[in-house]
Simulated scan of single mutants.
Amino acid sequence: MTSLPFTFGISEFTTMPWSFDEDIERYAHLGVDAIEVVEAKLDDMRFADQMQSISTAGLAISGVQPRVRTFFDSRMMPDPKPLDERVACLRQSIERLGRYAPGVPFITNTGAHPKGDMAEAMRVVSRELKELAKVAVDHGVTLALEPLNPTSVNVESAIWTVDQALDVIEATGSDAVGLCLDYWNIWQNDDLAAAIARAGDRIFTVQASDWRTPRSFADRIVPGDGAIPLADLIATTRATGYAKPWVVEIFSNDVADSLYEDDLEMVIKRCRDGMAAAWGESA
């Protein structure tokens, strides 16, 4: 398979019907360079062997999606409710997986404040990220805060713009806290190019997919098949010096034409082709 001029990654959310072991077995043969690990797909009895199998298969790790990744509860992960228990879960994920993913970002987002108090949510998340960053540094990893799409406000997230995320990140005062830049979530932000430029080297991971007007809470499509100006966003991101993996993350639930019901090997090939085309146009 022809090599790409960038590191092509796939999030395990993109292949949710496959097991972790199937992901590892198939990704490398499909031209995938890096895997975004979804902790929920790991077997608690053999997670160490599974994590070690990643490098054996010739894959890098682009990031880790912790089992509980929000500070306040969310639709995707409503329990546990108490903030301290959720932070403890995040800490546990870092402590058990960090040794297998040196230098890798653990991806977080705010969750939804129970009273819709977005300002307080940003203050609380800045405070908790500052403390959690110390744990991340001790384990040789980083944290990447992800602003979500406005469709997720007060459901999954209290922030929906790159600038809001950067305000939280900067308030931590820690170089171990950066940005997860998911194009599906932020492509409609005002002054996006300026926000990405502001992020600069605080962009720890990039995720891509494509947009159609959602038909469910999880309705993303293959890069190049929708409305997102991927080439422009890639060019703007490249201008910051970003040189880490470019990861396709697709959710496809509760829609009649779910990609999860499709041939997932073909989905990955289409994602690879779509990202390659956008990259070529971004030059």
Rank of each mutant, 00 (worst) to 15 (best):
D263Q: 09
N189R: 04
A194K: 14
I221G: 07
A171I: 12
S252R: 11
I61N: 02
L30H: 07
D257L: 13
A199K: 14
W246Y: 01
F251Y: 10
S11M: 09
G200T: 11
E120H: 10
R99I: 08
G173P: 07
V124A: 08
E25P: 06
G98W: 00
T151W: 08
L145H: 13
P150M: 04
T236P: 02
P80L: 01
E170W: 11
L59R: 09
T14W: 12
V104N: 07
I10C: 06
G9I: 11
G9R: 07
G58F: 13
T213Y: 11
S126Y: 13
R26N: 15
E249D: 10
D73R: 15
A101Y: 01
S152D: 10
R270Y: 00
A171Q: 14
R202W: 01
R69T: 08
I203F: 07
P17Q: 14
A28E: 12
E281A: 14
A34M: 08
G178C: 14
L4H: 08
A119K: 15
L264C: 03
D191H: 13
T205F: 00
A278D: 04
S126V: 08
V267N: 04
N109I: 08
V162G: 08
A171R: 15
A239H: 00
K81I: 15
P214K: 06
P223S: 06
L148R: 02
G98Y: 05
V177I: 12
A57L: 09
R212V: 06
R272V: 13
V255M: 01
E146C: 01
D219F: 09
V222L: 03
Q52A: 03
G173Y: 09
D191A: 10
G178S: 11
S258W: 12
D138Y: 03
A218E: 13
T70M: 05
K115Q: 15
G226I: 00
E170F: 11
E131A: 15
V153K: 11
G98V: 02
I61T: 11
D163A: 15
R220I: 09
R99S: 14
T151E: 07
E249N: 07
T70F: 05
S11F: 03
